[in-house]
Each structure stands twice: as C-alpha cells, then as structure tokens.
Amino acid sequence: MSDENKKSGWFSRLKAGLSRSSSKLGDGIGSIFTKRKLDDESIEELEELLITSDLGVATSARLAANLAKTRFDKDVDPLEVRESLAAEIEKILEPVALPLEPDGTKAPHIILMVGVNGSGKTTTIGKLASHYKARGLKVMMAAGDTFRAAAIEQLQIWGERTGCPVVAKETGSDAAGLAYEAIERARSEKADVLLIDTAGRLHNKSDLMAELQKVLRVIRKLDATAPHDIVLVLDATTGQNALSQIGTFKELIDITGLVVTKLDGSARGGILVALAEKYSLPVHAIGVGETAEDLRPFTARDFSRSLMGLGNS
C-alpha cells in the first residue's frame, strides 16, 4: 500500500475490501464496452453485472436504462461508463449518508441495536463504544441479549477492551427489564451514551418481534423520546431478503438507521442502493473488520466509486 493510500484513511480500507468485487465489476464493464457501441446487448450485459453486485433486478434495470438514454449507439469507453454509473449511484446514496451523532442534551442518548442473527450487532456496539469514548463521551453498554449462549460474556469482553461499563444480568432474564435498569443506571452515573444490545431475531418471527416491541414500551416508560436511535445492523452479504428484513423491522419497530457490516469481504453491498431507493433510511457507518477500529463513516461518493472499481479522485 502506498503512503498516499495510507493517508487517505478509511477509503483505502474500504477499497481494499471491495477491491475483489469492484475490480471484477470494473473488469466486466471493461470487457463489455471495449471498442463497442452501446447497444441493447451491451446494456443487458451491464444490467447483469449490476445484478451480480446485489443491486437487484429493478435497480439494475433502471440504472442501465438511464445510461442507455444518454449514450445509446454512441461509442463509449469503459471508464466513462463506470464514472457515470458511479455518479448515478452516488446521487441515490448521498441523502442517506448520515453519521450517528449522540445528542448532548439527552443524557443519556439511548441507542438500541437490532437485527437478524449474526449480523454484527454486538461487535458494532463495541466499535461504537470505542469510537464515542475516544471522543471523550461517557459510554455505557447494556447486555440486552439475554438469550444466546455467552452473548453477555461477549459484550463484557468488549467492555474490558473499551473500558466502558456493561450493565448485565444473567442469561434468561427479561430483556426489557434489563433495558429499564440500564437506563436508570446510565442516568444516575450521568452517561452520555447508552448502547443497548439485543438478541438476534429473524423479522418473520412474530413472537420475537413482539418481544422487541415490549422492550421499546418499557424504555419509553422512562423516556418517551427514547430510544433516540434504533439501528438495524445489516450483513453486507445479504441479498434481496434485506428488503423484506428492513421493511418488517421498519414497520414493526420503526428503525431509524442502518449500519452495514462485513464490507471487508467479497460481498459487494449493492443491496444498499436498492435499500436507499426504497426506504431512504440513513446509513450511519460501515463495518470493515472485527476489531474496535474497523468502523468507518459511510460516504456516498467513496462507496459508489469503490463499487464501480474507481479511484478516489
């Protein structure tokens, strides 16, 4: 990695992560348009390449059609096509790129972390705690996953790593009750931010979703405006099911934003584009690894350009 890359910070990390996928996509576009006119066949191929990045059939078709409108039957070079697609995607993502900023007047600002099993909720809480603490905020965490084996111990280790207190009860205790206690403790200890973990749950399990609604009701008994953020953690390898996942979580517990994890893998995270179009939920940050440092802001331009295999110019 060159010095310049090192300096450019998170982008190089993201780009390294996305490089396999983006270069594949980039190469694909390269081979489609080398010395060719933009015709129906090449548009279809382009559409298919977008589909293989998980953008989904509808979004891919629309992006390809837009390109066709302006460039059809013209000689196009691959770089131009990438640039214009990246710009198009950036336009879609720009409005949703919003950081997760604790509100200083809330004391504590309460963030509830939700999502399907194994998406990265607990790890993201650890990363956020580390991030906020580095900014001088007083952070507290609540081990609200009282179901999964060793979920509490997992968060407690994050507590040790980040030096932030963790409110916990034994496995099997009531998650809503724990959230209640955690808020009381965060208040009495004057914490700025309280990060509440929850057990993973599939959105189509009505009993588990009802349990989450109960957690919300109990939290709101203490503070009618809380949780101030309900963040859904989404695994970047997820395909089109993310649409159903987010639709249901939004409908039932009114999530306020997303964090996308595991973008350091070969998954392309293209589903984000379709999600932005359909739900316009803020994307707060992305996960690019398993350690505390591996959380990055989500930037529309960098993400779009990475997706298209373009440099950060």
Partner: peptide, 9 residues
C-alpha cells in the same frame, strides 16, 4: 452458510 446470502454465495 446463511440462507439469506446474496450473489456472493
């Protein structure tokens, strides 16, 4: 592997 995996499968 997760049944929700997309094209990366």
């Amino acid at each position: 592997a997760d049944a929700m995996t997309g094209q990366d499968a």
